[in-house]
């Protein structure tokens, strides 16, 4: 177990290094010039050069990257070009909101997706199943900003059940979390359905029935734990998809998380902030996958960590 963790963490560090390098190179070759953004349109050539020197942007790519890495290992993500604050402070102030949104999103996604998937599997081939699968297809295909605006219009503007935007109470969380979760719930319901159908066909389900167990017990104690195994591995991968969704959803609902921070930073080519957000999200994705792999052996005794 210790050896396994050690190797996986080493792998994780290598992945993060790769992510940082690729992102850094992409930002370097980008035609947008951060210095122009800072200096403004009226700045003289001299001012622009001064700022460029001051930020170290006149240095070759590898030197700049080396500096970034040196800062990174000391936990220093640099200063925002535009907000004049430490990137780590910026991210730390925004991260809790995003994590809350993400947790809410995952909860919605699992709750909706798994329930519908199980129901569809139990009513396989009947109208209810077909209806649910069409719904899930729509959920998967609908763009998040459309879903978000639709939910806002119906539940906030028309019905007034939830606030239109902002952050603070549980009521504020509901609509963004549902928006974030809907797309994934479509995936999960399809996955859970096929996984469940597969499991219900297994010999051990027949054994459970032959023992005279009740339907409920067969479903919850025998079928579900087996059917959910492939889904767990998905949750880890999902965090990556969520990071993309968060940018959209936070903008639609005015949610003060790192998604909005990233959006603003990208618009103004605020390289330290972009790098910081990228590294933090990549870290979460890697961690999510690792967690999924660590949890699986506890549910499936056949899998051993190596």
């Amino acid at each position: 177990m210790a050896g396994y963790l050690f190797r996986r963490l080493l792998q994780a560090a290598l992945i993060l290094l790769g992510v940082s390098f690729i992102t850094f190179v992409l930002l370097y070759v980008l035609p947008a010039d951060p210095v122009r953004q800072i200096a403004g349109r009226s700045a003289t050539q001299q001012t622009v050069e001064n700022i460029r020197q001051q930020l170290g942007l006149d240095q070759p790519l590898l030197v700049q990257y080396g500096r970034f890495l040196a800062g990174l290992v000391q936990g220093d993500l640099g200063r925002s070009y535009l907000q004049r604050t430490e990137v780590s402070t910026l991210i730390a102030s925004r991260l809790p909101a995003s994590l809350l949104l993400m947790a809410g999103g995952i909860l919605c996604e699992l709750l909706i997706g798994l329930t519908l998937g199980v129901i569809a599997a139990l009513y396989r081939g009947r109208p209810l199943d077909q209806g649910l699968m069409v719904t899930s297809f729509v959920a998967v295909s609908a763009p998040q900003f459309v879903v978000g605006l639709l939910l806002l219009y119906v539940f906030a503007v028309q019905l007034g059940w939830f606030p239109i935007g902002g952050y603070g109470t549980l009521a504020h969380l509901v609509l963004p979390a549902v928006t974030l979760g809907i797309m994934g719930s479509g995936w999960y319901s399809r996955m859970m359905r096929s996984s469940m159908i597969e499991v219900l066909r297994q010999d051990y389900i027949r054994t459970a029935r032959a023992k005279g167990l009740t339907r409920g017990r067969i479903l919850f104690r025998h079928a579900l734990p087996n059917a959910i195994l492939p889904v767990i591995a998905m949750i880890g991968i999902d965090i990556g998809i969520f990071m993309g969704g968060i940018v959209v959803v936070e903008s639609v609902f005015g949610w003060p998380g790192i998604g909005q921070l990233a959006w603003q930073a990208i618009q103004r080519v605020d390289i330290p902030v972009i790098m910081g957000v990228t590294m933090v999200s990549a870290g979460f994705i890697v961690l999510g996958n690792l967690l999924a792999d660590i949890v699986t052996p506890f549910i499936d005794p056949r899998i051993k960590m190596r």
Binding site: Q202, D203, Y204, R206, T207, A208, A210, H222, P225, N226, L229, I299, D300, P301, R302
Partner: peptide
């Protein structure tokens, strides 16, 4: 049943 390998719940 015939298949003892698959007739018991693996988890």
């Amino acid at each position: 049943f015939q298949e003892p390998m698959t007739s018991l719940n693996p988890v």
